[in-house]
Design a protein around this nucleic acid. Structure first.
Lengths: 268, 268
DNA sequence: CAGCCTGTGAAAACCCTGTGAACACGTCGT
DNA sequence: ACGACGTGTTCACAGGGTTTTCACAGGCTG
């Protein structure tokens, strides 16, 4: 299944308005999150921004260019660091790269290439990043754990198969929206649903069965006739009682995929 | 885990004798290990060389330049990939970078800068690589000692081969997460798993066999159907039963590499 | 009420994993 | 150089879990 990559976070330190204009336009199109600065930024502030990459015109932070570069590289070893300058000698570029820069491009530069280089740097940085799996998702008394490909109710594993887990994951990460069958199929199976295929229905049944079995007092998957399915933890038909006296205190019953949804599946 | 050689290993694919001459001189001075090729190199040969980086003039591998680039990048995600060309449009450079290249420099290029860029790429590659610092890890009555490339059960060596140890190490250091086969393969073998490769399964069997032999009362490697494997020390199939399966008695059966590593981390 | 949509149960087809063994390769001792 | 040995890779098959398919029953909409 294809996963939407978390948006890269970028800080740009530059003052070249013309370049910035065309660069930011492309960044927007590419879906980056970014902030622009016109001068040196305190190191701890950079840290706080949880950046993926930093694009910096050394001239802007003169006269402490090298020092700034070195500090940033030393303080944020995982940060992608790309320097861009009007004119630079080979010696300067070499020095910058040795100091910790990941790339160095010269103005005038095509924004598309700058972005491609930023992507390359971020990609490389991500590669090593130990499976920053998304945090578990909690709804009702259900906990969905991507690192286990499994869901837990009251600390007990539900025993989902691969597909069941993927389906639950897709539904739960939809943020309470109703998903159409074709949409669900597309996301879970990875290709278009054939006309008349009932797989989604069948798996919804299996899921419901297992969930009900492990968490009887909640309703998780809701049918929308003629449309599709929606995930939301509902206290449900409260004929069954005795076990769960306090449901009211549970704050967010709806799934809240605020944490990025990077499932770690690399199906070839 | 791939061994990161003290000296970076580089392959150069280029035919520009003048450039090569001056480049190799500098490479020698900088203490790199390298080999020079004058044409396309079979993918499996690249794998066998355990490279840190690859410097390639795309013109030399024409007409399959892009394909070659893509294959190399796909097969060796951890390989530093730097392209160098005489003339290239922005579009070409962008394409190359998107295809997986880590950097792209234009001839004529100063060898020192090329080396600096190679260093930068390798540094980045390495940075992410093994955050899994060495430190004994205990789970069940198993002790995994990175300094010995060996595991011990009840003080007795299990007798693991290199690959078996790497596999066990990767699994045990995953912190109880389920690892997919491709993931495991990538980490142990160092390159992408070919479709249909069963090596991981076979080694899991060997590992289980040896572990069972030396520590019969514990289960360490758990299969997750359709997903992969997970490491966790389980008291195992105790034929004696009658008592309620209260899992509360076994405190921390799961491996916790983070905690263990803090103890003896001698980062050189 | 008719027509389509969904829930359900079970059988069949499919794919995944465990397993044993043959095969390829490099090392080391004789 | 030769052959025994340890290691890693590949293959085919068996068993079983998983997924798909199918038919029918029950609901919802117009």
């Amino acid at each position: 299944m294809t996963v939407s990559p978390a948006k890269p976070r970028l800080a740009v330190i530059d003052t070249d308005s013309g370049f910035l204009k065309v660069l930011t336009r492309r960044l927007d199109a590419a879906g980056w999150e970014y902030r622009v600065f016109s001068g040196p930024v305190p190191a701890d502030e950079l840290v706080a921004m949880k950046l993926s990459a930093l694009l910096i015109d050394l001239r802007v932070v003169e006269p402490i260019g090298w020092e700034f570069l070195e500090r940033a590289a030393g303080m944020l070893p995982d940060l992608g660091l790309v320097v861009i300058t009007q004119d630079a000698t080979v010696a300067q570029r070499v020095r910058g790269l040795r100091l910790g820069a990941d790339d160095w491009v010269s103005k005038p530069a095509h924004p598309e290439e700058v972005i491609a280089r930023l992507e390359s740097v971020v990609r490389r940085r991500r590669r090593g990043e130990q499976r920053t799996d998304v945090g578990p998702l909690v709804a009702g008394d259900l906990e969905i754990r991507p690192d286990q490909f499994e869901a837990f109710a009251a600390g007990q594993a539900v025993g989902l198969t691969r597909r069941e887990y993927e389906l639950l994951s897709v539904l739960a990460n939809a943020g309470g929206r109703v998903l159409e069958r074709d949409d669900i199929y597309q996301r879970v199976w990875g290709y278009a649903m054939a006309h008349g295929d009932r797989s989604v229905d069948v798996f919804v049944r299996k899921l419901r069965s297992k969930l009900r079995q492990h968490s009887p007092s909640w309703e998780y998957i809701h049918t929308h006739f003629g449309v599709g399915y929606r995930f939301e933890a509902d206290p449900g038909p409260d004929e069954a009682e005795a076990t769960e006296p306090s449901e009211a205190d549970v704050a967010s019953t709806t799934a809240t995929p605020e944490a990025a949804n990077v499932a770690a599946s690399s199906t070839s």
